[in-house]
Computed example of a mutant assay.
Amino acid sequence: MTATNPLITLNNGVQIPALGLGVYQSAPEETTDAVLTALHNGYRLIDTAAAYFNEREVGEAIARSDVDRSEIFVTTKVWISDYGYDSALRAFDVSLRKLGIEQLDLWLLHQPLPSDFEKTIAAYKAAEKLLAEGRVRAIGVSNQTPKQLDELISRTGIVPAVNQIQVHPYYTQPEWRAANESHGILTQSWSPIGGSYVYRGADTNPLEDPVITALADKYAKTPAQVVLRWHLDHGFCAIPKSVKAHRIAENFDVFDFALTPDEVAAIDALDTGVRGGPDPDSLDLENAGFPIPD
């Protein structure tokens, strides 16, 4: 255990903070203040995406912050509308311009696009070019199944550094995590706290689970802090989202305790095997190919 945010070394030697701020569904008018608050509280990883429509606001916060750019790990993602080689390269330029930075730390393919995996491969080859040119420090994917990972790796030259997938106590994805580990790919958890989770027709929340609330009482922590500690004790990278200053600070206050192996296993056992949110394989250009404005 460390009293500060640990760094995880990716498969290309680049280091990424283990805990960061996600800005999915953060309204543009709230994003700048949220990122500034996070940086003030010690966060050094900020995760956005072209499809979140708030890259400019993330960039504004970075520019206004008194934290040196070299200390901030910035991730963004290319949306499926811009898959393909040339279009992905153009989308990267658009993202960098919106962010107002000269080099990106991590660029991810946001979805696998199984209905046109050739475009997925082409977009990843564009990422490889940008990596070779030094315009991005690491590249990876998001929501890729084990089978899709195998195909992508077999047809490209660089193993992804990261696969960002949905992981939380009610949806632990052991098979996907094992596939990532077998390739030396970091599992990065989106929706790490779980939020309001629909399971078997009922709204359930991991933060109200008796296993987690009992651990929160034991360690004098909040349920969210216990869940984030579970991610860290597994060696995942987690990117909880919030625009509330007190919650942003609370989510970062998880480095002064650790769960026991038995406690980690008890949270693992809460897995329902049921996804919250859409199946990424259901997304295609017809139903999700919305344009990303410049």
Results as ranks from 00 to 15, higher is better:
residue 131 L to T: 01
residue 151 E to L: 10
residue 158 I to N: 03
residue 109 L to M: 15
residue 108 L to C: 12
residue 217 D to V: 08
residue 186 L to N: 04
residue 24 Y to C: 08
residue 74 V to L: 15
residue 155 R to A: 12
residue 87 S to E: 13
residue 155 R to H: 14
residue 152 L to H: 05
residue 271 D to Y: 03
residue 152 L to K: 00
residue 96 L to Y: 03
residue 180 N to I: 04
residue 268 D to H: 13
residue 225 Q to A: 05
residue 80 I to W: 00
residue 177 R to I: 13
residue 139 I to M: 05
residue 243 V to L: 08
residue 19 L to D: 03
residue 219 Y to A: 07
residue 177 R to A: 13
residue 197 Y to S: 14
residue 157 G to K: 15
residue 156 T to P: 11
residue 21 L to Y: 01
residue 276 G to P: 06
residue 273 G to E: 12
residue 206 P to H: 08
residue 22 G to A: 10
residue 71 E to M: 10
residue 177 R to W: 03
residue 272 T to E: 11
residue 114 P to N: 12
residue 143 N to I: 04
residue 140 G to W: 04
residue 39 L to R: 00
residue 275 R to W: 11
residue 186 L to P: 00
residue 71 E to L: 14
residue 112 P to A: 09
residue 289 G to D: 11
residue 272 T to D: 09
residue 8 I to M: 10
residue 204 T to Y: 01
residue 150 D to F: 02
residue 128 E to R: 03
residue 88 A to N: 01
residue 172 T to G: 00
residue 114 P to G: 07
residue 221 K to V: 02
residue 241 K to T: 09
residue 282 S to I: 04
residue 116 D to S: 13
residue 90 R to L: 10
residue 92 F to N: 02
residue 144 Q to M: 15
residue 291 P to V: 12
residue 220 A to L: 09
residue 56 R to D: 14
residue 173 Q to N: 10
residue 83 Y to Q: 04
residue 79 W to R: 06
residue 80 I to Y: 00
residue 223 P to F: 04
residue 117 F to Y: 15
residue 21 L to N: 01
residue 216 A to Y: 01
residue 100 G to L: 11
residue 196 S to K: 15
residue 275 R to N: 12
residue 166 Q to G: 01
residue 113 L to P: 02
residue 247 R to S: 09
residue 229 R to V: 01
residue 187 T to S: 13
residue 73 F to R: 08
residue 112 P to S: 11
residue 237 C to Q: 15
residue 227 V to T: 02
residue 168 H to N: 12
residue 79 W to A: 06
residue 293 P to R: 09
residue 9 T to V: 13
residue 287 N to M: 11
residue 200 R to Q: 15
residue 150 D to Y: 03
residue 219 Y to E: 00
residue 145 T to Y: 12
residue 58 V to K: 01
residue 250 E to V: 05
residue 99 L to T: 07
residue 74 V to M: 10
residue 7 L to C: 04
residue 165 I to V: 13
residue 116 D to M: 10
residue 193 I to F: 00
residue 193 I to S: 02
residue 51 A to C: 15
residue 45 L to K: 01
residue 45 L to W: 02
residue 273 G to H: 11
residue 289 G to Y: 03
residue 253 D to L: 07
residue 115 S to Y: 02
residue 263 E to Q: 10
residue 10 L to G: 04
residue 127 A to E: 09
residue 3 A to F: 14
residue 30 E to G: 11
residue 5 N to C: 15
residue 163 N to R: 06
residue 58 V to S: 03
residue 69 R to N: 10
residue 76 T to G: 06
residue 200 R to L: 15
residue 200 R to C: 09
residue 96 L to P: 05
residue 38 A to L: 08
residue 245 A to H: 10
residue 163 N to D: 12
residue 285 L to F: 09
residue 183 H to E: 06
residue 223 P to V: 02
residue 74 V to R: 01
residue 102 E to T: 12
residue 36 L to F: 07
residue 190 W to P: 05
residue 262 D to G: 07
residue 72 I to F: 03
residue 141 V to T: 13
residue 133 E to F: 06
residue 41 N to W: 07
residue 142 S to W: 00
residue 146 P to A: 11
